[in-house]
Write a protein that binds this DNA or RNA. Sequence first.
DNA 1: GAGTAACTGATAACGATTGTCAATTCAGTT
DNA 2: AACTGAATTGACAATCGTTATCAGTTACTC
Lengths: 167, 167
Amino acid sequence: MEITTTAPILTKGRNPVEPEKLIRREPVDPSAFKRMIRQMGLKVTQQRMAILESLSAGRAHVTAQEVFEMVNAKYPEIGFATVYRFLRKMAEQSMVTEVRMGGLPARYELTPRRHHDHLTCVQCSQIVEFESPQIETLQEMVAKEHNFRLTHHVLELYGICPRCQTE
Amino acid sequence: MEITTTAPILTKGRNPVEPEKLIRREPVDPSAFKRMIRQMGLKVTQQRMAILESLSAGRAHVTAQEVFEMVNAKYPEIGFATVYRFLRKMAEQSMVTEVRMGGLPARYELTPRRHHDHLTCVQCSQIVEFESPQIETLQEMVAKEHNFRLTHHVLELYGICPRCQTE
DNA sequence: GAGTAACTGATAACGATTGTCAATTCAGTT
DNA sequence: AACTGAATTGACAATCGTTATCAGTTACTC
């Protein structure tokens, strides 16, 4: 593979922004990405840097395909297998969080500092994040009751968002 | 329907069996199945009767493939497309409940009278059912806060079961 | 019992994801 | 800076679970 030809890999442009789901993560400098990758015990490659770049710049809850397209727009030489592989590796190490809704393709987000769950509109797919420490606590209690050691959980609420209700 | 002579294509599924998750549903007589099917606005066919029969006799949380294999053992003429189609139709009408864990094949159970969620062992796949009205209530509150009209939810807890912890 | 729409089985097609493998690149070592 | 082994890559094939297609069959209304 070759990413030779042009300029530094990190040409700092801006990415198209979705109307409502705005960028909401703090800017991350390249050395932070490198640290992340090394922390996972992996080699720092240009493709992985590019993937992290796109992932952190774009909106949250993207599919692997969407990540691939973002990356591919900037670096057409990068193949989708690389994107899938890296996402999987990161998911294994909890560097990204995988959210699966029904039979739809998995969506990923860089694991947020604060844990949260999702409230999804079944009509327009809008995703609202929420936190409920009370629910978390109850979950722990349920696990304890059955003598399970809890590793993680999936809580997805589905409904109709305010806007879709009026239509 | 015609009894063909050719052997059916059996794509052998090899999912781990839950040793302790035994039959736990009350016996259902055929006329009840017929009623169920008619209630969905569908025609009563031998295949659908066979599928319901297997579904209610076997253990809970089975994959479509497993349902197919159960049905197929008794009625080799029934194709898997029929099983998938009927399961989907029943899921649409909430006659069966679909549970998806990670990227694994969907698992089905006849919709239980009482709503419950699942606690799954990440090592041996054992599934424990639990109810938590308190969590349900909190979910309603979260939805209300965001002005969503809740349609359903997915709550899956993952952990390590007591037995796997000792190993 | 006839008519018709619903249903069926076989098979092809599908989309998401994973495996394969030769070629390339990274990251330590001279 | 060049050397080297192992990790990584891109292209593509393969696999998975699931769905669509379609000609032939069946259940239900009259």
